[in-house]
Design a protein around this nucleic acid. Sequence first.
DNA 1: AAATTCATGCAACAAATGTTTCATGGTCGA
DNA 2: TCGACCATGAAACATTTGTTGCATGAATTT
Lengths: 290, 290
Amino acid sequence: MVEPAKSSPLSELRIALPSLPMRLQEVGRFVAANDYDATTRSMRDLAAEAGADPAAFTRLAKAIGYSGWDELRAALTEARRPSQTSPFSGRARGRRPGPNSDVALVTDKLEAEAAGLPRIPAQPIAEAARALHQAKRIWIAGYRSCRSVAELLNYELRLFRPEQVQLVGTSGPDDLDLGAIRPGEAVIVIGFLPYTHASVRVAQAAHRSGATLIAIADSLSAPMAEGADHVLLFEAASSPGFFPSLTGAVAIAQSLAAVTFSLGGAAAKKRLENTEARLIAASIYVPEKG
Amino acid sequence: MVEPAKSSPLSELRIALPSLPMRLQEVGRFVAANDYDATTRSMRDLAAEAGADPAAFTRLAKAIGYSGWDELRAALTEARRPSQTSPFSGRARGRRPGPNSDVALVTDKLEAEAAGLPRIPAQPIAEAARALHQAKRIWIAGYRSCRSVAELLNYELRLFRPEQVQLVGTSGPDDLDLGAIRPGEAVIVIGFLPYTHASVRVAQAAHRSGATLIAIADSLSAPMAEGADHVLLFEAASSPGFFPSLTGAVAIAQSLAAVTFSLGGAAAKKRLENTEARLIAASIYVPEKG
DNA sequence: AAATTCATGCAACAAATGTTTCATGGTCGA
DNA sequence: TCGACCATGAAACATTTGTTGCATGAATTT
């Protein structure tokens, strides 16, 4: 089974979709949107639900290069087969470059990261959220790869606390912000090995100014976790690959935002709704189609 | 006879298993071990593989309380349906404010997101990575909450392909970049519901210019996924909380970067080492203590 | 305007599906 | 040992499945 790694039937479908007759497009979209039902229920059954002719399914399959609906369905079924977590397929060293080694790498990575998430301690997150809830103002700092996490947190918190959340270093050099930190405010610093000087400086400034310091880090001994009121730990090195994993940090950030929102109660909800209404009014988003 | 309150059909099966005739036990074990095939392939097909009589499957279904094999199969398929909300999500609704409810929210969120990661299709990621590997240049676009993912991807790819990766909209308005996209280049667009007009415009520009379009999205029917050469799906709505989850998107982004790096071979490794050496020389990082 | 191609729904077809019946062979109890 | 019972496989059954030929109507070309 050294197959040349045929691409997924769904992507074949999607590529061929625009060049198909209208009815076949319709059916094709239905299959793409309900591919699980496509693998389990019968063709006629699907046709009834899609409001189309059963023959259209056969024609669709042939149009994208299969001998018939049965063959397409078989391909979809294989594509959906749950990843066999065989102990041998895993991290067996001596992975040779080949069409399937990349897929194995991805599967390993996803599984490892999924395994890491439930190990994240929940209680400190809830406590940190309470601290955020009480803070008059929230500063967020993250550098290099962690900047993305900082921005995500900044974005989500601003949805319902627009005036009170600020990313460190957006309006000028970091130092301007560092001097502005006051007691009663909260500072979130995100970082993992190797730690940047910049993040450590933010943490120290927060500590000195008497603000609440929340560190999202990969270790209790991380320099920005020193003197922190809350340390939220994630596993950065748990997954294979050339780069430490940020999935855990993102999950923490989102949980933190979710709990803080939940603590905000009706007021937070109202402010979120206002923000969304404003975005819709500015036609930032594509209108949903029925 | 106290029925176990109709839990999963698989556990019903396991419970009734010991009290069944030998052949039915055999078949039952086969079904339990191959429940995915049980939902997709035909009864006779399974019988052939299990080395049993087709009738045994019908008898097994009746023996554990179903009207026939069809009904058992239907129950199995429903139990396996992917978009199924996790059994924990029921807690989310009737949650009362209390000291532990926040912790429960965090736990639920982390569990739900962990469950979503292995469901991410791995193959399309590997294929998209191959496309990135061959691309002369890589553009990355993401707006609003997805900007953080875009920046993460940008950061990681730049570690080993510094001159060839560019975030859309960093050096002026987006439109400047859109006109610069050429065939042979690759464009990555990240987005989920509600979709921003900006992301759709980038996708369309990529498509028009003949570049390879890679969409990281929550649905095949996302507007920026139309005409895309690769669509990488994640579940944005799978987890409780006020905001869709980006964990899946981040995991995809990191896997994509990892595989692309792996495809880059020795050259990529060398360039990554150079980059790191430069960062250390500039003393960006805090030196590790022994 | 006529001819042609093509998309599409309907209906008939052969093949495959799940179920049931029947004959067989084995086991247990009287 | 005989008879009742049950598990089991093979074959026959009605049903459902995927497919294909055909007629219709719209769109495109000549």
